[in-house]
């Protein structure tokens, strides 16, 4: 069911459309309106984040553009520069809408970046464990167990306590927190897949091991990996926001969503809710949309749930 090479599907009698595994996957995914909605919302958010410098009325990281006199204005106020603060301003006089757009950039970059690196590390180690077997396997999996038994926030705190604050350290912490999920997933799948006939066949053809692993085995291990990766991106974004909220993440001059929320905390008690509220909504919508997609991916890609 998970072959990536398009099977020559049995010639469809009526419809001219040939049902490839990918098409079936797409149509099954779209069965859930909620997940499809999540995907669309996420695409929209990603677009905003990418195009933020073009869309945002203000560069929130350029202190020269900020007017401290415009600090803590409610949503809808007019800016001195001639545009409207649709979502209000924070205590620095930063336009919240622009801040959120740029904040999304950081959140998504940190989330996706850490996921890619963690995935590379985890997949490599997981494949080494599955193929190496024996002591290598035991050693790597013990590490995985140790890592997974440790709450992510604690591991991240530990690393940031050792290395200090900063965005690169946050990414590093996220990688160290996440790699084990990928390693466990890929190892489990690889152990099952490598016993299949096509791997035997590839070995019988005397293909080099790395070719067997990367061209034959890995593509077939992708479905569970995609599911884990989706969920982990959401987790990474949430964790980055949390760390930034705690003041351990990104620098104050370039706030991410978590830091924006944190900045607004003290003003919230006096009723100036917008400084914390809107970045929170942006964060929430991002994470929920990714999780909705991930949930549906898990159902579609899990062969055990097939009826």
């Amino acid at each position: 069911m998970s072959t990536t090479t398009a099977n020559p599907a049995p010639a469809a009698a009526k419809a001219p459309r040939v049902e490839t595994p990918f098409r079936r996957f797409v149509s099954e995914f779209c069965e859930s309106k909620l997940a499809l909605g999540g995907l669309i919302v996420f695409a929209f958010i990603a677009l905003i984040a990418i195009l933020a410098p073009l869309l945002a009325p203000q560069n929130p990281y350029d202190l020269a553009q900020l007017d401290i006199m415009d600090g803590r204005l409610p949503p809808g106020s007019e800016a001195g520069a001639g545009f409207t603060y649709w979502l209000g301003t924070d205590d620095q006089g930063r336009d919240m809408l622009s801040g959120i757009m740029y904040g999304l950039r950081i959140s998504l970059m940190v989330g996706a970046g850490s996921a890619i690196i963690a995935c590379a590390v985890g997949v490599t180690l997981g494949l080494v464990a599955a193929y190496g077997g024996g002591r290598t396997d035991t050693l790597i999996m013990r590490l995985v167990d140790l890592q997974l038994s440790f709450p992510s926030i604690l591991a991240a705190l530990m690393i940031l306590a050792f290395l200090g604050k900063g965005i690169m350290n946050v990414v590093l912490a996220l990688v160290i927190v996440e790699w084990a999920y990928y390693a466990r997933t890929i190892r489990g799948t690889a152990l099952v897949e490598r016993r299949r006939e096509y791997i035997e066949a590839a070995h019988c053809l005397a293909l080099p091991t790395h070719r067997v692993i990367f061209r034959h085995l890995l593509p077939n291990c992708l479905p569970p990996l995609i599911v884990v990766a989706t969920m982990q991106v959401a987790r990474a974004i949430a964790l980055e926001a949390t760390l930034s909220y705690l003041g351990l993440g990104v620098p104050i001059t370039e706030p991410s969503l978590g830091l924006l929320i944190s900045n607004g905390y003290e003003y919230m008690l006096s009723g100036k809710y917008w400084i914390s509220f809107y970045p929170g909504i942006a964060l929430l919508v991002t994470i929920v949309s990714i999780n909705l997609v991930g949930d549906q991916l898990r159902d579609v890609l899990n062969p055990r749930l097939k009826k």
Partner: peptide, 24 residues
């Protein structure tokens, strides 16, 4: 659906919202 929300909501933000609603 609520449980997906529970997994997704960042704890600290929910905390802030709780304070905003129930305390403020």
């Amino acid at each position: 659906a609520g449980s997906i929300l529970g997994f997704s909501l960042p704890t600290f933000w929910v905390g802030l919202m709780l304070i905003m609603v129930f305390a403020v």
